[in-house]
Structures are given as C-alpha cells and as structure tokens.
C-alpha cells in the first residue's frame, strides 16, 4: 500500500532484521544522496547564518545586507567579460536574497506550526471518522467544510470576518516583537491548521482503514478498551502507513502557505512579488523564490523519508503487511 521512494529504505532495514540496532544505522547513501546532503547542509548553514545575523541585529553584516557585497560579485563580470551576464544575475540575487530569506522565515513558521498543531487534530478527526458515531458525523462535517471551500475564503473569514481573532493575537505578549511574527501570521496559522487537519485527517483515516481489523480485535481480546486498542495497536501501525501521504500534505502546505499574503503576511512569495514590481525583474525574483521553495520542499521530503526509515518495522508497510 505505501507509495513512493522511501520504501527502498524500509526494505533495506527489513532485511537487516532482528537486532533493533540494525535499524538505527539508516539507509546507505548513494552518490546523489550525498550530493543532496551537502546541498542541504550548505543551504541550511547559510539560512541559519542569515537568520542569526539579522535576529541579533546584524552581527556580521548590517541587517538585510548580503555577506558578500553585490558590487564585488558584479565586479567578477568586469574581470572575466564572458561571465558578465552570469555575474550580473548573481549580483542581483545576492542583493535580494537576504530579504527573501527573512520572508522565508515566515513561510517556515506558517508551515511548521500549522502542520504540527494540525496533526493531533487530524488524528482525532481520523479516529472519530473510523470509529465514532456522532463524533464521526461531526468530523465528517469538519472535513467537508475545510476541504470543500477555498482556503483563501477561509483565511478571509478568519482575518476580516472575525475581527476579535486578530485582535486576540495582537494582545498576546511578544506577538510582532523580534522573531515572533505579527498577528496576521497567527491568524493564517489558525486557518492552515484547521485546513491542513482536514487533509491530514483523510490520509490518516485511509491508513487506519488499511490496518487489519483483526488487530483491533486482538487488542480488545487482551482486555484493552476500544480507545486503548486504537491508541496502542491501530495508530502505531496506521501512522507509519500514513507517512508518504502525510509528507504530500506537508509539501502542499509549504507552497500554499503563500496564500497568507492575501491577509497581509509578507511571506516569501509576497516579498518576491513586491521586489519584482519595484524592479520589473519578475523572472529573476520568482526563480529565486522558486529555488528557496524547492529547498524547503526537498528538505521536508528528505526529513520525512529519513523518519520513515527510522520507524520502519519489518513486514509493516511492505507488500506483506498488505
């Protein structure tokens, strides 16, 4: 049942077998894999340096200013005329990246906080839909509401339709100070959490339904309550089955977090768009933004692939597990 690339890892571990330690060694890396790790380390090393620099008020260079002056990069073009075009583009990138990376912080906050808060909600929704009676209907209503209406409409309702909600966040301590984003971001987090919970819940429900009913029955037969059987027997298996689908939802969320721009959150795509309309260099700025999104997405799916390998259990999730 489980789809996708990460299966290879699980299988490799399954062969290893008996000693639990064999599973902690992790998958063997191919050359392309090594390249990915190096690229990831460079990207995130740089991102963290940037964030650190700007959050601490400019330790290495003033806030928002590149580590290497764009003029220096452009100067390369003067030295080697064939590379003038490339150097020019790079200088442009170097000039705007610091600000784009600060905007990326908001994208990361929106995604990570929403997916994390949405997860327990999704588990509850999925369990209710698989096992509940009235709660099942309630969960179905929730899921249909949030899957069946445009996310943008949901954000508008939360931000403009419920004035007390942004006001509530504005009055919380630390909101809008330092690295803690302003209230619009938290309203967007509420929207993404609810919306994402609906989608995550559907992936998890599918996984719950693919667990053999005999498992629940065996849990009941040793004297566990229904809730206990779900908690200790069904969910540990279902959540493993759900990882590939759940990763999909995470990747979507990274990208549709840009809808927060419509309720004034200056996240990555919004900032790219703003710079683009200042400079008319749309292509370059959206390519830059795209590269940063790609970095986030590849990071997220690699992390989840790693997690999937770490929690893999022999026979679970491969063909044999059903």
């Amino acid at each position: 049942m489980s789809a996708g690339e990460a299966d290879g890892d699980a299988d490799a571990d399954a062969g290893g077998g008996v000693a639990p330690d064999a599973r902690t060694a992790g998958p063997r890396r191919s050359r392309a894999g090594t390249l990915k790790y190096v690229a990831g380390a460079v990207l995130w090393g740089w991102v963290l340096l940037r964030w650190g620099n700007d959050w601490l008020g400019g330790v290495f260079v003033p806030r928002g200013q590149a580590f290497v002056p764009p003029a220096t990069v452009a100067g390369l073009g003067d030295a080697i005329p064939v590379l003038a075009g490339v150097a020019n583009g790079l200088a442009f990138a170097v000039h705007y990246l610091p600000n784009l990376m600060n905007a990326m912080w908001l994208t990361v906050v929106l995604t990570v906080v929403s997916i994390t808060l949405g997860f327990p909600l999704a588990v509850a929704l999925a369990a209710a839909r698989s096992y509940g009676h009235y709660t099942g209907w309630a969960a179905l209503g929730f899921v249909e509401l949030f899957r069946g209406t445009p996310l943008l409409a949901q954000l508008f309702v939360l931000y403009y339709g419920l004035p007390w909600l942004p006001a509530f966040f504005r009055n919380l301590p630390f909101v809008g100070e330092g690295i803690v984003p302003a209230q619009a971001v938290w309203v967007a987090v509420v929207g993404f959490t609810l919306n994402s919970a609906a989608y995550q819940g559907e992936y998890i429900r599918g996984a719950i339904d693919s667990v053999d009913p005999g498992q629940l029955e065996a849990g009941r037969a040793v004297g566990l309550s229904k809730l206990g059987s779900v908690r200790y027997v069904v969910l540990p298996q279902a959540l493993r089955y759900a990882i590939p689908g759940w990763t999909n939802e995470l990747v979507y969320l990274i990208k549709y977090s840009s809808l927060a721009a419509f309720i004034t959150v200056p996240e990555l795509l919004y900032r790219a768009q703003a710079f683009a309309s200042e400079t008319y260099r749309y292509t370059e700025l959206f390519v830059l933004a795209g590269v940063l999104y790609l970095g986030l997405v590849v990071t997220a799916s690699s992390l989840m692939g790693y997690v999937e390998g770490r929690v893999a259990i022999p026979g679970l999730g491969n063909a044999e597990g059903r």
């Binding site: 053999d212 005999g214 498992q215 029955e217 065996a218 849990g219 037969a221 040793v222 027997v233 540990p236 298996q237 493993r240 259990i313 026979g315 679970l316 597990g321």
Partner: peptide
C-alpha cells in the same frame, strides 16, 4: 478469558 486466533493477529508493529 484469553483468546487465540486462527490467523494469529499478533500486533504487527
């Protein structure tokens, strides 16, 4: 009351 099943139903995880 203990129960033993035809298809074992061991907790797979």
């Amino acid at each position: 009351v203990g129960m033993v099943f035809q298809d074992f139903n061991l907790f797979a995880h």
